[in-house]
């Protein structure tokens, strides 16, 4: 594992306030049942890591939370708002929930600074100078303020992913979702992104992270969820999860990747 951080290093920031609530959620892609009877409660400040083999539905699950995918059955309640067909709700959810993708999805035609200020200016109606200052603050937090005037294509993968994180943070979201943020990166760059994420976790942000970085999971997670074939197979605190996995599917998975 690329991070050498020890487990349990970060204190839990979870409160009792519920941020995300998922009740009996089901989703199909056509006839294929991707998510089966998902139940999950995430509290404010809680950090959840989702792992599992590919095709197990972990990405789909967090994309549903962000309303990038529609679910067919059950409820998803984010910050007190029920996700449904109501478009106004969707826009609201998207401004409150930040998301970081495997492939960064930065806007290649805009500079780094413009990438960061686009949302605040057009969605939050922030003034241009204010948005710029705000963006620089977050660029400093991800330690690349000197790249502000470059284009995404001129940055390394790790830098691009840190910009993507900063871009989401500029919208001051209440929840951050990470969809395999380090999977497309060269090994040398994984650490710089994980470091930024650990720092973010330290600020008390509610986070759901889909990742295969188990060292990272041990460091930040309040809860680790293991998914397989659309089911949440096991959910436990990281110490129990890694040292004493209950389900045989989890044991097999952990024995293969650790």
């Amino acid at each position: 594992m690329s991070t050498e951080l020890k487990q349990g290093q970060l204190a839990s920031a979870a409160s009792t306030e519920v941020m995300i609530e998922i009740n009996d959620m089901n989703k199909w892609y056509g006839a294929f049942h991707v998510l089966k009877d998902i139940n999950l409660t995430v509290h404010k400040g809680e950090r959840i890591v989702i792992c599992g083999p590919s095709g197990s539905g972990k990405s789909t699950l967090i994309r549903c939370i962000n309303a990038l995918e529609e679910h067919q059955e059950g409820d998803i309640i984010v910050d007190g708002i029920v996700l449904g067909k109501n478009l106004k709700n969707l826009d609201h959810i998207r401004t409150e929930v930040g998301m970081v993708f495997q492939n960064f999805n930065l806007f290649p035609h805009l500079t780094i600074l413009e990438n960061l200020t686009l949302g605040p200016i057009w969605v939050r109606k922030m003034g241009k100078t204010e948005a710029g200052e705000n963006a620089m603050k977050y660029l400093e937090r991800v330690k690349i303020p000197e790249q502000a005037d470059k284009y995404p294509g001129q940055l390394s993968g790790g830098q691009q992913q840190r910009v993507a994180i900063a871009r989401s943070l500029c919208m001051s979201p209440k929840i951050m979702l990470f969809d395999e943020p380090t999977s497309a990166l060269d090994p040398e760059m994984i650490k710089e992104v994980l470091d930024v994420m650990v720092e973010l976790a330290d600020t008390g942000m509610t986070m759901i992270v889909v990742t295969h970085e188990m060292g990272f999971a041990k460091t930040i997670a309040d809860e680790v969820i293991f998914m397989d074939e659309g089911d949440i197979v096991e959910q436990n605190n990281p110490i129990e999860f890694f040292d004493n996995p209950q389900h045989e599917r989890t044991q097999l998975f952990l024995s293969q990747i650790l």
Binding site: N66, L68, D91, R94, T95, V97, G98, M99, F101, N105, L106, F107, L118, G119, W122, V123, R124, R167, S168, C170, M171
Partner: peptide, 8 residues
């Protein structure tokens, strides 16, 4: 998706 997640 990138545009949607920043609320556009």
């Amino acid at each position: 998706e990138g545009a949607h997640t920043i609320g556009l």
